[in-house]
Design a protein around this nucleic acid. Structure first.
Lengths: 129, 129
DNA sequence: AAAACCGTATTAGTGATATAATACAGTTAA
DNA sequence: TTAACTGTATTATATCACTAATACGGTTTT
């Protein structure tokens, strides 16, 4: 069962996108693997204090991207082969890295300064339990 | 006059926040300094293809934060002293760095891997003209 | 078979983002 | 002084994200 223990809502970003991001990060991290079971729309929405429709929107997009399989009445499962894993990993890493690099550059920092900042702040990220 | 030449709209993020971000990044980069003149609401909205009210919303927030000064009928100017410069710089750097570090960590990367990625992608960021 | 789940769908309402069209009064430059 | 700007404000409309309350039928478990 896919875990949402370390999931914290951030404001300013649509919730359904945060759910998408959380699952894709889990895939890249290797925590989520093929055939893993997803929490039901009702269970996850109750757990996160959301409306089932918000979770459904995220799940629907994942299904459209071919990452999960859903059938009326049955539970939903991850459907990941090598090609999809590679695609998710490459897209996520590229987006996160380019966004950060772009922001650092716009602030006038050098490559070395940006890398040093990232390493300095690394341990300040809230630890996951 | 503050420049918006390298400003490109990204979707998924409220436009007024992107304007705020652009100006704050310019401040940190040292491109925007005290007493600099801001483009008028009408001029900037026309330049960016937006509604004047959208620009007004961003400028209003900057004024609330004490970074610009506006008076009916007159142009708007940056109002930056050492304390404000420090505040903007610290807040922006901390937010950008922590967001990136958090995303990298969630993907299961190590500090060294993340720093290496950032350096590898550095030159791939679209160059500003 | 029946109960307890499940995915899916629909309709309605709220708040935020953004557009559009004006209007008014203060400042500045010709 | 007058024309052209400026900031500021108001009202209306559209879209999106999200909530809320249901409903229907399929699957699974007991």
């Amino acid at each position: 069962m896919i875990s949402f223990d370390n999931f914290k809502l951030r404001d300013g970003i649509p919730v359904y996108l945060q759910i998408l991001e959380h699952i894709k990060q889990g895939i890249v991290a290797g925590e989520i693997v093929n055939n893993d079971e997803l929490p039901s729309r009702r269970v996850l929405s109750a757990l996160l204090g959301l409306n089932p429709n918000t979770v459904q929107k995220a799940y629907r997009i994942l299904e459209d991207e071919g990452l999960i399989e859903s059938h009326a009445g049955a539970k939903s499962y991850m459907r990941l082969d090598g090609e999809k894993l590679r695609r998710v990993r490459d897209e996520l890493i590229e987006r996160v890295t380019l966004d950060a690099a772009e922001a650092f550059k716009r602030m006038g920092l050098t490559k070395a300064e940006a890398a040093a900042l990232l390493e300095r702040y690394w341990s300040e990220v809230e630890e996951e339990k």
